[in-house]
Design a protein around this nucleic acid. Structure first.
Lengths: 210, 210, 210, 210
DNA sequence: TATGAATGAGAGTTCATTCAT
DNA sequence: TATGAATGAACTCTCATTCAT
């Protein structure tokens, strides 16, 4: 239905990025197709030549980045790595790399917010039903729990670790937003990241030297 | 400027709650003054008699709840309690209590999201500059750090604890939204809460029995 | 649902007449709410305060004039008059009178044209099913058929008479459109009308002097 | 100006028929060049290569069918036939035949409806001024008026006959539109037609057996 | 010759806001 | 105090038309 995937990839990316930015920051209802078209550098009419409606644009964006994340993130993840923090590190490196090409991709999950459009809500529910809570569970699947200190409740710890990861993600996003050239501080981000992982190991793992 | 504080408190609360609900759930841009007026049970024109604009309404709501939180929350907090988790527990009990009168107050922080209105963005930045990250620092001020395991980096741990608290808050909010009679599961919430605190002590504190 | 009938009758008539003019001349699909609002002398937004949509406006206009025609035309018709041409004359006098207040009312039937909007088409079909071919049958009901020349097929003659009446109606409409002050030639129209009726009697009736 | 007449006649006919259908059924303003191009089986851009604008397309269609009617209809009419009803019969047989190749030609007159485009309105008026009511006068020219009953006003009778003919035409059109295979009921149409002519003779002519 | 890409103008509709009472 | 009426600007989307190839 959409003609978005028959066109030049540079323009396609411009549209997809612009749409992801607008939809994730403003939400579906408040997102303006005007803003998206302007940010993508094309006329509004042309955009509606590529997609038939705001709804379709939203769903195309959702599916595109959903697939992208599957292929450029999930399928590249090495789940043989059983150390949860090494896994998380892997995950962050991939995400940061993706962020270079798709600067708003870390905000992808915000697309799932409930909107005023029931059709969108239903479609989103369909997709999430298929995927069954896409990211988090697998990240924690079959991790090496023997490394955790024995007295800890593993499930609760996973929860704490997840929440910390979310908090850290938000910090990264803010860092990226606040710097014009996001590529420059790639190393700084990784350094910060590694600092956190050192500490998380201290917190949750049996100390090796004890 | 606003006449909101010259009127009957019941109506004022109706307006403030309705506005907080709409602004926090829809965001400033997408929030509808129509919906707020209807939810508050008054005409739109009357609402614009009390406040001069949507902007003013937003800022009044922001400041009102900001002050409320200061007075009904911060000033009631007992900072003599130096145990961070006991402090956090206190904090949650106070917040949940506030939620009974102001059901959307836990969502207050969502008001700070960036909007399309630059004026709003600026005003919000002014306020946050004045307050300098209103809640968190004090929550962690002068806590008893001796309880922490010696090998831990206290500052990073505080960060982890804060992120966990944020995650837990979101869980509470979802619980409240998903239940028709929020008061009933007050005890359940506290129970869950205490479970988390037990574990957090396990994680971060020196084990007493060792 | 519509607030059109709670407002000042002068403005209401302005809107109804403007809408009837636009809808009957342009058809539902091509009719412009802009044009209607401008012709009625109000803002488009106000018009959408009175009616919730173009569809509703159309249906309100349809029903209003449909009812008006029933009350100011059908119920005033004296069907005790059994002479078909006297009846038709009555009919025309009433229609011309209505045209003074509602200059486009003779075009009312054009509202029934099929449009691109299936909802409108369905609503129109519902209404026409209820009314069962509103005008014509009754006009020819129980007329005095003994006046017709014996060798004629009455049913076919009725058809011819109806078609002539339609042709005459179109002539009247054109006359009205071509003159700025339609009231002036009221008498001229009636005169022309009577000329036709004289001749129609000659054509279809047994000649009295034979 | 137009290049329509330099191209393959089959494609030309496809365009002309598609345009006649769309313009006559939707009116000039609401007609979509998209629909016409699609129905004609060519791209919109190519269509605008043949004609310079929607306006020109409309006028070309108008003039083409106007000429066609002149040549394939008017010039084939045998005006030596002085009996008006035989003439009308001739006329209908020719029209029905034309309908086979140009299915929408009976709707040609609908092109003359007033539109929102003043240029189109003016052009149409020019053409009709030149032709002076193209069809009707000649149809009634030099007919044998002696056959009419003596007491009748011939001019008015011509008017009645014309109006009946119009009514009958509409009936035929509706018949054609409502049947999937229009050719099948060709004979039925002619039969119906002849029934009307018999009666019209009864109505207007001196009865032969009296 | 033939077409997909591209656009500005305008459609219906909603919104925050002001006016009159 | 309180409200319904009123509006201009902005929204999403479609259209006839032009451009580039």
């Amino acid at each position: 239905m959409t003609k978005l995937f028959d066109i030049d990839s540079e323009r396609r990316n411009a549209i997809l990025n612009a749409a992801l930015k607008e939809f994730s920051s403003q939400g579906y209802d408040n997102a303006s197709t005007n803003v998206i078209a302007k940010e993508a550098g094309i006329s509004k009419a042309l955009m509606f030549h590529y997609v038939s409606s705001k709804q379709e644009l939203f769903l195309v964006v959702y599916d595109y980045f959903s697939d992208l994340i599957k292929m450029e993130y999930f399928s590249l993840m090495n789940y043989d790595e059983k150390d949860i923090f090494s896994r998380l590190r892997q995950s962050y490196l991939l995400q940061i790399k993706l962020s270079e090409k798709y600067p708003w991709i870390l905000e992808f999950h915000k697309l799932s917010r409930t909107t005023n459009s029931n059709e969108i809500n239903e479609e989103l529910e369909n997709r999430s039903r298929k995927e069954h809570a896409s990211c988090c569970p697998k990240l924690f699947d079959e991790i090496d729990e023997t490394k955790f200190r024995k007295e800890l409740d593993i499930d609760k710890c996973k929860q704490f670790i997840l929440w910390s990861a979310i908090g850290f993600t938000n910090e990264i996003i803010e860092d990226i937003r606040n710097s014009e050239s996001p590529d420059l501080n790639y190393e700084l981000v990784v350094e910060k990241l590694d600092g956190y992982f050192v500490e998380l190991r201290n917190v949750f793992y049996t100390q090796s030297n004890e």
